[in-house]
Amino acid sequence: MTTEDSNADALKAPPALAAATSSAQLRGRLTLLAIIAVCVLPLLAALYFRYLSPPELTATVGESIDPVPLPFEWLQTTDGQPLQHPEVGGKWLLILAAPGGCDARCEHTLYLTRQARTAQGRNIARLDRLWLITDSTKPAAQLLAEHPDLLLVKATDDKVLEALGGRDSRHINLIDRRGLVVFRYADDPDPKAFIRELGKLIRF
Rank of each mutant, 00 (worst) to 15 (best):
T109L: 04
G100L: 15
G101C: 07
E107R: 11
A104M: 15
D79R: 11
P86V: 00
K91L: 08
D79T: 13
E107G: 13
P82V: 07
E107N: 05
W92H: 01
Q81E: 10
P86M: 03
P99M: 10
V88D: 12
K91C: 02
L96W: 01
H85S: 15
G80R: 00
D103E: 08
E87S: 09
C102N: 06
T109G: 11
G80D: 09
G80Y: 01
A104R: 12
L83Y: 01
C106G: 05
H85V: 01
L93H: 15
V88F: 11
D103Q: 10
C102S: 05
K91I: 02
L93V: 04
L94D: 03
C106D: 10
H85A: 06
P99D: 06
L93T: 04
I95W: 11
R105Y: 08
A98C: 12
R105V: 15
G90Y: 07
L94E: 14
G90T: 04
K91E: 14
I95R: 10
H85Q: 06
H85C: 11
G80P: 15
H85K: 07
E107T: 09
H108M: 13
G80L: 10
A104K: 13
G100Q: 04
W92P: 02
V88A: 11
H85D: 12
G90C: 03
P82C: 03
Q84N: 01
C106P: 01
H108P: 01
W92V: 01
K91G: 09
G100I: 13
A104F: 12
Q81K: 06
H108I: 01
D103N: 06
A97W: 05
D103T: 04
P86C: 05
C102D: 02
R105I: 08
C102V: 14
L93C: 11
P99W: 09
C102T: 13
D103R: 10
D103F: 11
L96P: 07
C106N: 02
V88L: 05
L94K: 09
E107V: 06
G90K: 12
A104E: 13
I95L: 02
G101M: 05
D79H: 10
G89K: 03
C106M: 07
G101W: 02
I95C: 08
D79Y: 09
W92E: 02
K91M: 07
I95V: 12
T109W: 15
L93I: 06
C102Q: 13
G101N: 14
G101F: 02
Q84H: 09
P86K: 00
P99C: 09
L93E: 15
A97P: 00
P86H: 00
D103H: 14
G100P: 14
V88K: 07
I95T: 14
H85R: 04
C106A: 07
Q81V: 13
L93R: 13
H108C: 02
I95Y: 11
W92N: 00
V88E: 06
P99L: 10
G80C: 15
Q81P: 03
G100V: 10
G90H: 03
A104N: 08
E87H: 05
L93M: 13
